[in-house]
Structure formats: C-alpha cells, structure tokens
Write a protein that binds this DNA or RNA. Structure first.
Lengths: 161, 161
DNA sequence: CTGCTTGCAAAGTGTTTGCAGGCCC
DNA sequence: GGGCCTGCAAACACTTTGCAAGCAG
C-alpha cells in the first residue's frame, strides 16, 4: 500500500522494513498509520490519525490505531508527547522519515491557544546533564511538552501590561 | 488529618482571607479543600482531595471539588501540574502555606514508578530566559512535569538486565 | 495452519456541565 | 432575599480491553 498519488513514502518503507526485521506483522492498519505519520510535518493526536487513516484505509478502527501506535512506540518507530491535560500527540521517530528533524526535539505548548512548537533538544541538554549529575534522573526531553504562553498570545493578552 | 478540631491551619486562614478580600464566598467545600491541601507536603490528585475532604466535610461532591479547585486556581491560591497522561496534581501556591517551599518549583516524574520529584525553579530559569529571549515564549515551569527515569528505576533497569 | 491482529462495543479514567435547590453574604 | 455554590447524574474526551473472526506469515 502506498501514497494515494503513487510512490510509497520513504518513512513507511523504512518502518515496514523494521517491522519485518523484528518479526512483526505488516498489516493494512499499521501501514495506514505509518503513511499518515510520514505525510505530515506537525504532530497528530490519535484521533486525527484515525480520521486520516480512515481516508486511505476505510474501516480502520480507533482501537486498532491505538494498538498500532502502542506497538510502533515499543519498536521506537513512533514517539508520543503528552501535552497539557489533553490528547497525546504522535510523530515518527525514525531517522530519515519525511517529517524528521535533525535529531530529537522537545515541545513547547501554549496554554492559551494550544499551539505546539518544536524546540531543538540541544536547548534541554544542559538541564538534562544537571539532572543526571545531581539526581541521577534521566530526562526524556521529548516525552512531555513544556507549558507556557507563546509570543503571539502574550502580545495579545498584554494589551496594557 | 487535622491538627485539632478547632485550630485552623495558617494556609487556610490566609486563603480564606484572600477569598473574602476578592468577594468570593467561603463555603464548607472550599474550606475542606484548602484544609486538605494545607495539610500535606506532597501533591494530590483531585480524586485524592475528594477522599480526604470527605473525611473532614462529609458529603462534599467530586464535581464540587473540581469547581473549588478551578476557582482557587483562578485566584492563584492553588496551582496544578500535569503529569504524564494521568490525573493532574494540585498544591497550594500561597506564600507561607504549610507545604510551601521557598519559591516556585518544577516537577520531575519518573515514567517507570510514577514518583513526582520537586525541582527548584532556579534550575529552569536559564532555559526560561532563553525561550523568552529567542522565541518570546513565557515558560511556566511548574505547569507540566518533566518526564524521565528516576535514579532508583534507572539503577534497577541497568544493573539487573 | 497458527496465532497475532483486527473490529466492535463496552468499560475505565479524568474532568466538565445542566439543572434545581441550598447557603453565604 | 439575591445570586453564587452545591449535589447529583449524565455527558464528555481520551484510552484500554474482552471476545470472536480475520488475515499475515
């Protein structure tokens, strides 16, 4: 199964190869999820993935997407990030995927408008090193979004102060 | 659970004073929530607060606790932190409360055992300054927990296998 | 063929909301 | 008394799970 307009996506090819190498089955639902994730530059919630996967593989069930995501997460093919108190967002974590930045990245979320911004992992490395040295705590920079107010919302909200 | 049947906790007194000053009503449910939060050093989920509040003010409903927490949060009397994908944890944010550290603190959560560790906000100030300078993003260090693996779980995971 | 995967629905958390009545001020 | 607050249940959003049938290998 490939992209609707023809050629298979490189990230899907790589992920499928990894699935086979690990002895995991390559199913329509898993391919659909991979194709969706490889086709976007932003981060998608499980529900958004369900909607987009259904467009290219009708009948794929919500629960199946959750299970596929869990499997792919265990294989380190996809990563998820907890944002605020709402739905987790998912993205490919395979090197070479269409949406992969150069190296891991952390996330910032605006508590006002909800936008999720990417942050190079390098920004968190000094902190990660301190935490590991002082507390033995091994930080996973991409696993939870940092919350705050983005520039646009801060400007709007300030008004006079 | 409570110091004595008649002696109110200092944090409750301060919070009640603030409620009256803002024209907010002082109710049995709100006092119960404040008393619970002022009596613990850890962070509690809404559900844990419901259980403890019920012990001191029988009949207080879950929904009421949520509404009380929302009100107190708007008044900056209470702060909440999102941890992983599970229930948010709440704590007093009034200066002088029994459980208040010197100044605000961030949180670390171990994804293996779930423990929540406190982290002085100073550890995040360099990062916060960079984010504000470079992106205009105003970080709220206490609003979301940083995820990773604590020293104990890292030791268990490494040494054994 | 074997057994992992899927689809379905229902349950399980965590949190919010509409309504009628109660309490604070 | 007025209007905010409460109790209740039900809805709501997100995620997981038991079961039988289906499909990958």
């Amino acid at each position: 199964v490939k992209a609707a307009d023809g050629s298979p996506r490189p990230g899907v090819v790589a992920a499928v190869a990894m699935l086979r190498a690990r002895g995991e089955r390559v199913t329509r639902a898993r391919e659909a999820v991979l194709d969706v994730l490889d086709g976007v530059s932003e981060h998608l919630t499980a529900d958004e993935i369900v909607l987009r996967a259904a467009a290219r593989a009708p009948g794929v069930h919500r629960a199946t997407v959750y299970r596929a995501l869990a499997t792919l997460r265990d294989l380190d093919v996809v990563a998820h990030t907890h944002v605020g108190g709402s739905a987790a967002v998912y993205h490919l974590s395979l090197p070479g995927a269409s949406d992969e930045r150069s190296g891991p990245h952390a996330h910032l979320q605006c508590t006002t408008c909800g936008v999720v911004l990417d942050l190079p992992a390098a920004e968190l490395q000094p902190l990660a090193a301190r935490l590991r040295g002082a507390l033995g705590f091994r930080l996973e920079p991409a696993h939870a979004a940092l919350l705050g107010t983005c520039a646009a919302c801060a400007a709007t909200g300030t008004g006079g102060g």
